[in-house]
Amino acid sequence: MDNPLVSFTGVSKRFGQVWAVKSLDLSITRGEFVALMGPSGCGKTTTLRMLAGLEEPTEGTISIGGRVMNGVAAHERDTPMVWQSLALFPFLNVRENVEFGLKMRGVAKEERTSRAKEWLDRLGMSDFGDRGIEQLSGGQKQRVALARSLVTEPEMLLLDEPLSALDAHLVIRMQGVLSSLQRELGITFVYVTHSQSEAFSMADRVVIMGDGEIAQIGPPREIYRRPATRFVAEFVGRNNIFEGEARGNSLHSPLGTLPLPVTAFGPAVMAVAADRVSANRDRPGEGPSVKGRFLSEEFSGTSILCYFEGSDGSTIKAQVDEEALDLLAPSHGEVFWISWSTDAAHLVGS
């Protein structure tokens, strides 16, 4: 990657006996929207905090714009952050909150006021300048937090699960606000989340972390369609995992012999996305298929996820639309054939 804005080189962070981040190598280019995603305790927030200067790496170097930032205090960096708790200053009004960063940088009062106003206008909060923080709704607070972070016009904005405290409908609206802001401003967003939908809908690249390490980096579609490891396939969700012994073009699993998309030998894990499988009462003529007893269905707005139990007790998921479910009319315990085309399967690292 040419001239990256941010480089993590062999960065590790230890808290007592626990390694929160292990030998992390990551480059982020200017203007990129990168999402760090992973389960709780995977090291994503620690990585973000090290970038902000709130934690010092135990090993390795972090560079921003070519400058090594190890030992540089948070207030000497230009890495504003939006918190999950928003961390607005409750004793200051909306305008004073937005002006805070400028005040700390010694910007004259008149300019502070006009820039704060400009940002409040931009985020549709111009009428709320004199309000107290406690008088705002969750979405309004979120906009103030964004204005406060962006008013200094930084090269990069760090966001630590900023939408996780909002109602579902607000999350979708704020995702739109964030995406368009990032595109308009052309600044780098480093976004920590455990929400797949947030990461996949906004980010140019997603970094999946697990146990302090990077499990996979790539565009959302690649992560979704071609998970590199079993951990990624399981974390991303809606993947069916088949484990067994690869012998050339087939996988010998407890559910039967299944064709592999590539030639392989030895223990292997194959993933098939739930939206690439279909459920039928009769066995399909060709292509891989396994038997499963219908367990339950989960309605998620546009699609329905049906859960089946394989003969070895494993769970098999099939994503169907409402029409297909009506045709299928499954009842609990009924046996179905779950099938897919061979090229929908993907061999993942164990």
Binding site: L54, A73, P80, L158
Partner: peptide, 13 residues
């Protein structure tokens, strides 16, 4: 909340 203090730090305090 520690977040509030850290927010001020990343804002240049």
């Amino acid at each position: 909340p520690l977040d509030t203090e850290e927010a001020a730090m990343v804002d240049g305090s």
